[in-house]
Write a protein that binds this DNA or RNA. Structure first.
Lengths: 130, 130
DNA sequence: GATAACTGTGGAGTGAACTACATGGTCAAT
DNA sequence: ATTGACCATGTAGTTCACTCCACAGTTATC
């Protein structure tokens, strides 16, 4: 598919798509069409990649970080041990994030209950991580 | 407490604290100290406010949005029902985020196992949200 | 073959959220 | 009274993630 269709499918603007390509987040193929400035051809897997970008962003990763992770994966140059090592690090990060998120959720839940209870007892607090 | 102590307590830099004050996110009192440029006095509730800012950011709210919400709360214009409603919406947002995070974690864990297993069987995939 | 609807490149601009000075006033301790 | 650790203001710079635009080539449609 061409860029406009891809943009429509992913909900991104054409400009943003080109921006992502420049950053190396997307790797469309080049068509024979377009002469000196060949058109970019996007495949279904690129749509999946866009989805991954969205998720990464939702998790608070920067585009640079996302690009770096994808580059490593894409090259597959890492030996098995290295790949696993990398994914463990990623997982650890995700886990830390999950813990933080859970803490936040518990806090908000407690606060709602506390308010429904007429604000009796001590107001729930969110202790900062040390 | 003065700005340095406050910054330490909240994990923010002094510059960031001043930035937040400029944006109206924090409302320190003014001391008698400091002459023409009076020192800012932060109270424990300001530390709580800083925590709220952190939460809001984790939820993907902009500082502007956070400021707007706080302004509403500060003015006490929201009735109890409204406050609870707001927190429920916040909680729902957090929950969606947690689900996404769990999905991603499961994916990474599966991938690690798959690799440790010699990449036998189908490569785990991250089904896209519909 | 004119024209509308695409495509590309290059570069500048925007808004958000900091971050880094330079400059100068204030305070506590010696 | 000087020194060092604070404080404030103001302005400028940075990074990130887009976003806009002018200009030009290409393709599809009538």
């Amino acid at each position: 598919m061409l860029i406009s269709e891809f943009a429509l499918k992913t909900g991104l603007s054409r400009e943003t798509v080109r921006f992502y390509v420049r950053l190396g987040l997307l790797h469309p193929q080049t068509t024979l069409k377009g002469g000196r400035n060949p058109y970019q051809l996007f495949r279904p897997e690129d749509v999946a990649t866009a989805e991954l970008i969205r998720i990464g962003q939702a998790l608070g990763l920067s585009l640079k970080e996302i690009a770096a992770l994808m580059e490593k994966r894409r090259k597959g140059k890492l030996p098995l041990k290295g790949r696993i090592e990398m994914m463990r690090a990623q997982l650890a990060r995700l886990n830390r994030k999950a813990v933080e998120l859970d803490r936040l959720r518990a806090y908000v839940r407690a606060k709602i209950e506390w308010q429904e209870d007429g604000e009796k007892g001590p107001e729930p607090t969110l202790e900062l991580a040390t």
